[in-house]
Design a protein around this nucleic acid. Structure first.
Lengths: 333, 333
DNA sequence: TTGTAGGCGTTATCAG
DNA sequence: CTGATAACGCCTACAA
């Protein structure tokens, strides 16, 4: 391996001069500098990251941690992160699985963006205590070294539920995410509140009260499939279903497709995330949309601010409702 | 930051003893060892990757380089890589974009798996010459430090074309990938050969000769959309289309959907890759399937062999035909 | 303007 | 079995 020592020898200067020249320091003559650069090129010199890191205590690498690589979901998010980071001279690496957590405490990366259930909040706080900078996208975490960029889950869930209610549905299922999920909990809570807010006053007997049924899901297709089975079994009249993410809605579609019921006719469905697939299923899935690219970009910006000790405040990503054929107005009664 | 020096001081031993203990060397007493371990825990010691790497000249990290993060396509591939690597004590990081290429020559990673058009083959050969170990999934590259694990593109393209021909189509479009793409070229070449092999002898006038039309695509949805426009404009009778990947087939669907023609009735389509989306479009897309997980796993295995200087041979991933509603038998003439 | 030297945190060789 | 000590490749005062 060719090091600055080799360059120094070949160029007939000292290694410090080489280092200065390579780093564009004005302390070295134009002449010697260009000679050194030439020799470096000739020897195919590439600096050793480990040595530089050891000295400078930074790697210019940011890690994005995801629960799994499978999410057809993450492309734009990562793209948004990368664009911002690259512009600032940082590289993005994507990791998954608890084995890779070590990259943070071992200082292979300068900071992390976390959307990853394989991290416990305690673990993250430990890292933050050790001085590592973090941005979390999937939980609330209060620590000076941690910033959060969260979806506006409550607004989204409220929009979704109000849509179903406005369209006339009075029996509404909600299929949740896994137990500990922050996103699931927030969405669920807002959904419940929306139901309560829309419940008719006792005195007013003209309006039918809203029946609310919760089904435990998991944010995977399987969760939607199981929910579909239950819904079909219990079916008596047109119902609405709020799947707390699109993935489960797709699973639900798969099962309903093989039944005698139809999406958007008997079973009306809305999801959350607006993943790519959702626009291709038939009928198109109603859902809650937000800019994944912007989410990633903002997360990166916040992390860089944290790293450079600029002041930061928590950020929120806004969401919008996408109406579609999976939810048709209820027939007049 | 707490280093082995701090541990040594607190435990009242020398730093070399600490190092031995931490690395489980048998050269140190059970007693001192456990004391040292205790102190390390107490101080929350985590080894510094840069220092270790500088000394040992390895990071135990493998990089997977992808053309972009967007591919709804890569999940299983990466999963396959990760499982194998983790089992052997390596971590996987995923990178994209030419800026991240530096991780290889700077020795932040011990090797790379490349499915990334942003690398030129010359660049890869340079790295190989410098001693870096590579596995390529998207090109042929002959170098002792490079192994290739390629799809059996020719078999796949042949299966696809024979399927269309057997179903009776005599006018067949092929929508290619971008100019330089190795996969596209291989598939295209095999498609042409299949046509030729199936062209009736001149003497035999009962069989109609096969008309073959090539459309330049790009492996993106846009390529399929443009192809669809051309095909619709030229439409006179039922035709078959071989999109050299599923992504373009989906783009083609989008345009045909808004026309008066129907997929699987007027325009018959087959893709390549069997991406997740392909099973959800209506009608389901016929395509060429292969195990992405196995592809990734094999690539990792080969790379590890390269790193440990075991002998390796190039590998091939086998493919199968998936028939589906996007290709219906041609009406009898 | 250039060179000398010390140190970043580990590992590993060699004595004791 | 344990302890000095010299690297690994680079950066950066400080000295010349």
């Amino acid at each position: 391996m060719v090091s600055i020592k080799d360059i120094a020898k070949k160029a007939g200067v000292s290694i410090s001069t080489v280092s200065y020249a390579l780093n564009g320091s004005p302390k070295v003559t134009e002449e010697t500098s260009s000679k050194i650069l030439a020799v470096a090129k000739e020897l195919n010199y590439v600096p050793n990251a480990a040595a530089r890191t050891l000295k400078k205590r930074e790697t210019k690498i940011i890690g994005a941690f995801l629960t799994d690589f499978d999410g057809a979901f993450y492309g734009q998010l990562l793209q948004g992160m990368k664009e911002v980071l690259n512009k600032k001279g940082y590289d993005l690496i994507v990791c998954s699985g608890s084995q890779s957590h070590r990259l943070l405490p071992e200082r292979t990366i300068d900071g992390a963006i976390v959307l990853d259930a394989s991290f416990s909040s305690e673990e993250l706080l430990q890292y933050a205590d050790r001085g590592h900078k973090l941005v979390v996208l999937d939980r609330e975490l209060d620590h000076p070294n941690v910033n959060q960029v969260l979806l506006d889950n409550k607004a989204g869930a409220t929009l979704a539920m109000e849509y179903l209610i406005e369209e006339g549905y009075r029996k509404i299922y909600v299929v949740t995410g896994p137990q500990g999920s922050f996103d699931s909990n927030q969405r669920l809570q807002a959904a419940k509140q929306t139901i309560e807010r829309n419940q008719p006053l006792e005195s007013d007997e003209r309006d039918q009260s809203i029946e609310y049924i919760e089904i435990q899901g998991n944010f995977d297709k399987t969760g939607g499939e199981e929910a579909a089975q239950q819904i079909i079994k219990e079916y008596t009249e047109p119902v609405a279903v709020f799947c707390l993410n699109d993935e489960m809605a797709i699973g639900l579609y798969n099962v309903v497709k093989d039944s005698s019921y139809r999406i958007g006719e008997h079973i009306h469905v809305i999801g959350f995330d607006n993943m790519e697939l959702s626009q291709f299923v038939q009928p198109r899935l109603a859902t809650i949309d937000y800019s994944k690219r912007k989410w990633g970009a903002l997360a990166s910006e916040q992390l860089l601010k944290l790293i450079t000790d600029e002041p930061v405040e928590h950020e929120r990503i806004y969401v919008t409702l996408i109406k579609a054929g999976s939810v048709h107005p209820m027939q007049s009664m």
